[in-house]
Amino acid sequence: MIVVNKDNIVSGNTVLQPEYVPYLEEKEKEDLKRKAKEKKLRQKRLKGKIKTIRNISLAFTVGVLLVGRYCVIYNMQQQLNSINKNINQVNRDNENLKVDLVKYNNIQYIEDSAINKLHMIAPDKGTAVQADLDKEVIKSSDKKSENQVPKGVWNKITKMLF
């Protein structure tokens, strides 16, 4: 017996037609096993790639959400700082106005500015005219005149009927 190839065994004399007995069933089984192993290996690699892509996309999404939230917080902090700055400015202006009010509330200052700037003179007691400002000079009426009635569809209809 001569072994030429492990897969092909030649039995008998080579002059005659050798009897070839292929081991197809075993070879097919080995091929099927090899293909099954390759298929499992490909599926395993594919699952690994899918897990990696999923993890990367999840990390990216979480990162984008965190950065977006920090942007919102930063903008809110900027607005808060701006509003606080405006409040401080208004408080300073208020204090300045209070100081001016105290300054202008002094009767001596008012008399000096009236005499010097406006060229007014002090009144004599004999020529002074007193006015009672507590009374109302102009009386307001609570009645509405006919011209002031709002014009609407209903009012026009009632005018036409009555």
Score class of each variant (00 low, 15 high):
I73R: 07
V67C: 08
M76P: 00
S82K: 11
K33F: 14
N86Q: 15
K135A: 09
N116C: 05
K44Q: 06
K6E: 15
N106R: 02
N88H: 06
R92H: 06
K47T: 07
Y104V: 09
L46I: 09
P18Y: 04
G152Q: 03
I87D: 02
P123E: 04
V149Y: 05
V21Y: 08
Q17H: 08
M1H: 11
E111H: 09
Y23E: 08
V4E: 15
L46R: 11
G12Y: 01
I83L: 09
K51W: 06
K35C: 05
K159I: 01
K27W: 06
Q17E: 13
A114M: 14
M76E: 08
Y74G: 07
I121Y: 10
E136R: 04
K47Q: 12
V21E: 09
G12P: 00
Q130A: 14
E111S: 11
Q130L: 15
D93K: 03
R45L: 12
P123R: 06
F162L: 00
I9W: 13
P123V: 01
V72S: 06
R45G: 01
I138K: 06
K51H: 11
G68V: 00
L16D: 15
L24Q: 04
I87M: 03
G12H: 02
S82L: 09
N13W: 11
I2H: 07
A114N: 06
K143I: 09
I50S: 03
Y104F: 07
D132S: 02
K139N: 04
P18W: 02
S145C: 05
C71Y: 13
P150I: 05
A131E: 08
I73K: 08
T158I: 13
I87H: 02
N147M: 05
I73S: 03
W154R: 13
I121T: 15
S57F: 06
K159Q: 10
K40T: 09
Q43H: 02
Q78W: 09
D142Y: 02
K98T: 05
N105C: 01
Y70W: 07
K49M: 08
G63E: 01
A128G: 04
Q148W: 06
I87W: 01
D134Y: 08
Q43V: 01
